[in-house]
Design a protein around this nucleic acid. Sequence first.
DNA 1: GTGAAAGCGCTAACAG
DNA 2: CTGTTAGCGCTTTCAC
Lengths: 419, 419
Amino acid sequence: MFTNFITPAGRTGFYHRPASRTKRACQPFVRHAFVIFAIDNRPGENVYTKPADTMTPTIKDVAAHAGFSIATVSRAINAPHTVNPVTLEKVRQSIDALDFRPSPLGRQLRGERSRLIGVVLPTIANPVFAECLQGIDELAAAQGFRLMLMTTQYDAERERHAIETLREQRVEGLILTVADADTHPLLDELDHAGMLYVLMHNDTVRRPSVSVDNRLAAFEGVRMLIAHGHRHILMLAGTLAASDRARLRHVGYSQAMQQAGLTPAPALEIDFNADELAPSVLAHLTGSQRPTALFCSNDLLAMVVMRGLRRAHLDVPRDMSILGFDGLAMGELLAPPLASIGSPNREIGCSAWRRLIARIDGTYADASLSLTLPYTLREGATIAAISSHADAASARRSHETTPAAAQSGSSYQAAHSAG
Amino acid sequence: MFTNFITPAGRTGFYHRPASRTKRACQPFVRHAFVIFAIDNRPGENVYTKPADTMTPTIKDVAAHAGFSIATVSRAINAPHTVNPVTLEKVRQSIDALDFRPSPLGRQLRGERSRLIGVVLPTIANPVFAECLQGIDELAAAQGFRLMLMTTQYDAERERHAIETLREQRVEGLILTVADADTHPLLDELDHAGMLYVLMHNDTVRRPSVSVDNRLAAFEGVRMLIAHGHRHILMLAGTLAASDRARLRHVGYSQAMQQAGLTPAPALEIDFNADELAPSVLAHLTGSQRPTALFCSNDLLAMVVMRGLRRAHLDVPRDMSILGFDGLAMGELLAPPLASIGSPNREIGCSAWRRLIARIDGTYADASLSLTLPYTLREGATIAAISSHADAASARRSHETTPAAAQSGSSYQAAHSAG
DNA sequence: GTGAAAGCGCTAACAG
DNA sequence: CTGTTAGCGCTTTCAC
C-alpha cells in the first residue's frame, strides 16, 4: 500500500498508491524539510501537520489537511456552490487552519487574467502625478485590480526599462505618462505587440490618451494675461523642455502673443529642482527689460519662481504677474493664491483607467483614440492688471495697480473642451 | 514518425515521437488557434511561424523557432556560458525575432523569489507619503525589485484588504504606514505568519519601524513656541486623531506645556480635506480667547489653517504664530515660509527599504527593531515672538512683534536623534 | 553540449 | 459530488 520512493529531486517520501477500487485516493505529499502524507482518513480525521511558518501552504496542504483532493479544494474556493456543504465547511476550516491563500501564480499560469495594471509616471514628487495616481488607485481597488508602479524621472532609458519590466510581469495594460508621446518608439512597439495602454497628460491625437488641450489652455491663459494689459510676457519651462506638454503650451503662448501683435519669446528654461533660481534667470526677471507677467509651464515652477522674486524683493502681483499651469490644490493655499490653468488630474487618472479597462474588455467603441478633458482657468490673485501703455519700468513704479483688478478677467473663467 | 493526436483539451496537433536513436528530438507544439510543429530541422533552417501578435511567445516558441529544446533556451538565458556559442547565438536571434521575454510566473513557480515588495500607504495625495514612496521607488528600481502599491485612506478595512491582497501576490515583504501600529491585529498576524515588514512613520518600539521621535519633536517644537513668549498654544490635528503619530505629537505638546507651567488643551480636530475651516474651529481661532500660536499636527493642515486665518483677516505671524509638522518642501514656498518640524521623508522611505531588504536577506543584525531618524526644526517665518506678558488681545494690537524675531529661536535649530 | 522529464500551484475537462 | 489528469512557462536534475 505504501511505496518508499526517491523523487527525482532527491527528496524522500512515501507514495500512497490506492488500490484501484478505493474511492478516494490521496495525493503524494512532500514538503521540503519533512515528509507528510495523508492517510486515507475520513474527512475531519486528518493526520496533517502544519508546515513550518516560513513555508507558504499550497492547495495540496489544504487538500491533505481536509482529506480531499486538490480539485475539490479548488472548487470550494472558486465554485463553492458545486461542492457538498459539509465538504465545503471542512475545506474552509482547513483553509483557515493553514492560513492558506491561493497563489495568483498558479492561476495566471493557467492563462487567467493577471488583474495587474502597470503605471509608469515621471515622478510622484509632483502632485500632478500623485493626484492622477490617486484617481487610478481608487478605481483599481474598487475593481479588484492591482497596480504596479514605476517612475522614470523623465528619463528615456528608465521609461524603456519600466515598460519592459511591466510587460515581463504580464500586466494586462499600462497607464503611462512619457516625456514625448509622438516620437516614442516604445509606444509603437506596444502598439505592435498588442499591449494595451493609455497615456495620461501626453497631449497627442495619435495615441490613446487622456489630457487637456495644452495648446488651447495656454493660449487662453496668455490671452487673459494680455487682456490684463500685459504686453511683455515671458514663458518659463522646466527641465522637461523635451516634453510634449511644455512644447504645446509654448505654442499656445506664442499664438496668443502673435494674435495680439506681440512677439513671443523662446521659453526660458528653469531647473526647478534647484533651491535657488539661477543668476542668469533672475537677471532676466529683475533687469530693466524684465517682463510684467510670467507664464510658468507648471505650478511647482511658478512657486519656485515666486519665492525667487520675493527674495529679490519683487512683489507678486504688483511688480510681476504670475500664471501657472496644473491647478495644483496647493497653489490655492499660497499667499497670494496662485493663478493657474487647471487640469483635472484626478479625473485624468480616472478617465485613463476607464479607457484602459474598456480597451482590455474590448468595449472600446469610441473611434477617437484621444480624450481631451476640460481645463479651468483658476484666477487666483497673482495676476494684476496694468494699464495698456505701461512698460516694465513704469509698472514697477506704478501703485495704481491693484490685485482686485485681476477679477476683471473673470470672463475667461470657463471650462473648455476641445472635442 | 508523426502521430496525429487529440489533446485532452480538444486541440489537435502532431506529436513528433523521435526514433530512439535520434539525437535531437523536437517538442510537441500546439498553440491555441493553429498548429505548429518543428520538423527535425537543422538549426537555422526553421519552419516556425510566428504566432499571432496577441499571443505572448513562450520558451517553447523560442525553442521551436531556434530548433533546440526548451532546456537549451533556458540555459541560454540563465547560464549562457554553458551552451555552445553557436547555439547561443541562434537562440538569441530567435528570442529577438519573437520578442520573447521570460515570464516571471514560470520562474516564481519554480520557487524563486518574486522580487516583489508591497507598499501600503494611507494616501499619496499627502506629499509626506509621496516623498517616502519616491525614496522607496528609487532603491527598488536600483535593486531590481518591483513595487505593488495600495492606499488605504486611513481606513482599517482597507488596510486589511491591502495586506491580504499583497500577501496573495506573494510579496517578499511589506513596507507600510498604518493608522495605529501598536494595537494593530494585522501586524501581529504578519509577525506570526513570518511575513516580513517594516513600518514607516509609525512611531513604535514594539515593531520594525522607521520614524522620527514624534513625541520629542513635538516637545521641542512647542518649547520653541514657548521660548518665543507664547503661552496660549493650541494643537490642531487632522481626522487622523486615531493615528499613533498625532497622539504622540500631542503628548509632546502637553509635556512642553506642563514643563512651562502651562495648561495643555485637548487637540482641536480639523477636517483638512474640507475647503473651508469649520465655523466652530474658526471661532476658536479668532475669538477673544484665541491662542497666540498654533501647533499643527501636519503641514497640509497648517496650510489650510493659514488660508482660513487669512480669510478671517488675521495676519501670520503677527496675529498668530504657526508651527507645522512634516517639513514639506512645499512649505518653504509659502509666504511666509512655514515653520515646521521636519521629518526626512525620503530618507524614511530609503531606510525602511534597507531594513526590509536586510530582514529578507537575513542580514538584519540590529537588535533594535525600530529606527529613529533625526528630525529638524525648520524656522520658517510663521513664528513671531511676543513679550512674555502679552495676551492674545494685546498681541493682536501690538506692532512691536517682528517676523525677524523668529530668528531668536535658532538655538533650537538642531537635529535630534533619540537613539 | 543538449534533450527528456519532473514539478512548482493551480484550474478545468472529464470520468465515475 | 468528487477524483484524476493534463497542462500553463519555466528551471533543473539526470541521462546521453
